[in-house]
Nucleic acid binder design. Structure first.
Lengths: 134, 134
DNA sequence: GTATTTGCAAATGATTTGCAGTGCT
DNA sequence: AGCACTGCAAATCATTTGCAAATAC
């Protein structure tokens, strides 16, 4: 019901496909189109990639979903929620969230440039503990 | 001559195409494939997109060039140099560099996670002064 | 001289579009 | 009922690949 309302608040029709997209994104945190497609097909065997793309775009249009572009990786998508940064393991490719409050940044940028800051996207790359052991 | 040496140091053959790519990237700061292609064609009318992609990849392989992925934009490429962040105007699409020292970040991440940090990519979006006036 | 690189054309992969039919409100 | 949404197939756009000829060292 919560997601149903969420869609309505953004003036989007609450179709089962959209509800499933939101649920899967909430569950995964961030997800690529391919993973989203194969997960969602287990519920909606008939859903098409075109529908996924269209829905992701309409939800991006109302800032419900955000695009996460990572160097060397396919685009991921996630629900807009509390601010966080992403950390990517360059060996195994795992992408994780880490806590991050961009407030200090926004202030820094505001003082350095005359921009009106909206968003900060931070992607850190490194080697995760598991891969370091190998 | 400088770029010639630069390529050799990275064990890449110094072809005129590669030299031109480096020069254009140094001049532009960051550039999309399309812009790079049309600029470079003014010098090498015969250069192909395939060659651009191949060269960009070999130079990325030796960390001479970095990929910059920006939400809602095509991939850009730039020479690896002093660390900086990018700021994107969501109205006019202009992408600029701003100064940024990731040192404090790297420390923060190192303490929060067990990652061995290599790189930090920061993309800020907002509205540039010009567009604010409109 | 040899291994690498280039440019072409074709292949692949990702995303978008048009349209007829369906479903939300 | 009416407009937005879906799924399909086809179109477009981005990137990669195979290969013969050219070039760097």
């Amino acid at each position: 019901m919560k997601n149903y309302t969420l869609l309505q608040q953004h003036k989007l029709k609450a179709t089962p496909q959209r509800l499933a997209i939101i649920e899967l994104m909430e569950y995964h945190g961030h997800i690529s189109i391919d993973d989203l497609y194969s997960s969602i097909r287990q519920i909606f065997s008939s859903i098409s990639l075109a529908t996924l793309y269209k829905n992701i775009h309409s939800m991006m249009g109302v800032n419900l979903i955000r695009e996460v572009k990572v160097p060397g990786q396919k685009t991921h998508y996630e629900i807009e929620k509390e601010r966080h940064a992403h950390i990517l393991c360059t060996q195994c490719g795992e992408l994780k969230d880490i806590e991050f409050d961009p407030q200090s940044f926004i202030q820094l940028v505001a003082s350095q440039s005359a921009y009106k800051t909206e968003e900060v996207s931070v992607i850190i790359s490194g080697i995760c503990p598991k891969c370091q052991k190998k």
